[in-house]
Amino acid sequence: MSDTPVSAALLTTPLNALHIELGARMVPFAGYSMPVQYPAGLMAEHHHTRTAAGLFDVSHMGQLRLVGPEAAAAFESLMPVDVIDLAVGKQRYGLLLNEAGGIMDDLMFVRRADDIFVVVNGACKVADIAHIQARIGARCQVIPMPEMALLALQGPQAVTALSRLAPGVEKLVFMTGGHFVVNTGTLSIPVFLTRSGYTGEDGFEISVHHAQADALARALLAQPEVKPIGLGARNSLRLEAGLCLHGNDIDASTSPVEANLLWAIQKVRRAGGARAGGFPGADNILAAIASPASLSRVRVGLVALERIPVREHVRLEDLQGNAIGEVSSGLLGPTVDRPIAMGYVAPAFAALGTRVNAIVRGKPVPMEVAPMPFNPTHYFRG
Rank of each mutant, 00 (worst) to 15 (best):
T354E: 14
G321A: 05
E147S: 15
L95S: 00
C124Y: 15
S291Y: 14
E317S: 09
C140S: 00
I308S: 09
A149C: 03
G353I: 08
V83R: 07
G168T: 11
F180Y: 03
P69Q: 14
Y32I: 05
P339W: 06
F29E: 08
Q223Y: 01
G197I: 09
L107W: 00
G31V: 04
I206F: 00
H60T: 04
H46V: 01
G31L: 07
I143E: 15
M26K: 03
D85E: 07
V110W: 10
A241T: 01
R355H: 15
E76F: 03
A287I: 00
L319G: 07
P156N: 13
T354N: 13
E201Q: 11
I136L: 02
V142M: 11
L221I: 04
I132Y: 02
L78A: 01
N16R: 13
I340E: 00
R307K: 15
L151K: 03
L331S: 09
A44S: 02
P371H: 05
N121Y: 01
M26Q: 12
A211L: 10
V120C: 07
A158C: 12
G122T: 05
G301L: 11
P339V: 08
V327E: 02
G94Y: 03
S296N: 12
T377W: 10
P28Q: 09
T377D: 10
L261K: 07
H46W: 02
E99T: 00
V169A: 05
A370C: 11
Q141K: 08
A282S: 15
G168R: 11
V181F: 03
L319T: 09
A100I: 10
R270Y: 12
F279P: 02
K227T: 10
G137H: 04
N183Q: 13
V36R: 11
Q154H: 08
R361N: 13
S328G: 07
T4H: 14
G137Y: 05
Y198Q: 12
N322Y: 13
V268N: 05
P228S: 11
G102Q: 00
E312G: 15
A351W: 13
E70W: 15
M145E: 14
G68V: 02
Q212F: 06
G321H: 07
G137E: 09
C140M: 00
A44G: 05
V110T: 12
P373W: 12
I308R: 10
R355L: 12
G94M: 04
R299P: 04
V169L: 03
G343I: 07
M372Y: 08
M61A: 06
M145V: 12
F29C: 08
P190M: 06
D337M: 15
M367E: 07
D3L: 14
G54A: 00
A348W: 09
I189W: 02
G31Q: 02
Q141N: 07
I359A: 15
S255A: 08
R92C: 14
R111V: 01
L42I: 11
D114E: 14
G200W: 11
A348L: 13
Y344H: 02
A149P: 03
G102F: 04
L18A: 04
K227R: 15
P366H: 03
L165V: 01
R139D: 07
F192D: 01
V257W: 09
D106F: 01
P334W: 05
